[in-house]
Design a protein around this nucleic acid. Sequence first.
DNA 1: TAGATTGTTAATCGATTAACAATC
DNA 2: TAGATTGTTAATCGATTAACAATC
Lengths: 206, 206
Amino acid sequence: MGERLTVGVAARLSRYLQVLTQARKMGKDRISSQEISDYTNINATQIRRDLSAFGKFGKRGVGYSTEALLNEIRKILRTQGQHNIALVGAGRLGQAIASSTIFAEHGINIAAVFDVDPEKVGRTMDGIVVSDYGNLRDTVREKNIIVGVLAVPPENAQQAANDLVDAGVKILFNYSEALLDVPQDVAVHTSNPAVDLLYALYFHLT
Amino acid sequence: MGERLTVGVAARLSRYLQVLTQARKMGKDRISSQEISDYTNINATQIRRDLSAFGKFGKRGVGYSTEALLNEIRKILRTQGQHNIALVGAGRLGQAIASSTIFAEHGINIAAVFDVDPEKVGRTMDGIVVSDYGNLRDTVREKNIIVGVLAVPPENAQQAANDLVDAGVKILFNYSEALLDVPQDVAVHTSNPAVDLLYALYFHLT
DNA sequence: TAGATTGTTAATCGATTAACAATC
DNA sequence: TAGATTGTTAATCGATTAACAATC
């Protein structure tokens, strides 16, 4: 119980969480391992195996209760609380991120948005006032934010990463193609649709 | 040589490709497996192992030639040509995607953008004219597009997916949190930053 | 009861890692 | 030569899958 999950298990549980969240929204009370498999491309046996390591959550012949399983996985992943994150960049990508329900749905709150452009500073973006980039350090420290999302042009990504890390951020989401150099104790997640696409194309072409 | 790569190998090679592309831009002529490891969090031994399955691309004591390795991996992944994709949704996310250099850099060309909003149709977005959503089927067929990117609100994602699939698309990138039901021969890649974040937080909190 | 789906076993395969000789 | 880094081996661990009894 107190043991740390392996990287693979934690990644898969996160994906089950996403499917369950959506299934609940769609009004599905029950879901089978096969249905989760269809949406995630993770083998149904493995899903049952992953879950049964933590308890007997399902009913044979019936499946899993969407709501109950959601809560069990949240307990396992310890993601029941609210998390504050900082968003750097109020351009089109930053606006798209701020207006998405994708974070709010999982208890993730965009606590601050920063931009260098005086035109954007002070404006309200989906309920959040854009702060001047100069306030980044103080705000991130005050609010104890440990997650930063970079929605800036690639040429500014390293500088923004440095400033976030200086302010205490430990997890960075990089939406530019730039490679980031960060201290060992900071985790960088780079999202690159082009890379995923090349990979998907390989399997289509072969 | 003619054998199909496993899913894991293809995914890793795609990531090496991304690192090499950026490293070349930064003017690095040579790169070591350890450097690639630092950027990808993939074990350096595994990187050397993956590469050596296809040939002896490196020089002991020196590393790999960035340019030469880039070309070798492109050959292995068969991603040397140009690929046309269709983008659905010219909102903030769609605009962010269209203006990004992330696709162009890997030979991926946004051949068409569609939107239902008459305000947006006809406008030029980063060099691409936004087409009416009603033309989706014909355009996708004419241009033989097999990749569709969904940058639409979650409530419209399934409809857009259906229309793209009807028109012949085989690979979908879903940037909404919606779950998509598609035929077996269509691959869906869902990008959900919230899920990645919960997973990243787990390892930070434990 | 009949049908469906879980929980679990067992067997296989790929990923991961340490270690180190080869060699630039 | 000395230092660095590849290519490769060997050992271990986790992922994957088929199969099926248990049971709802």
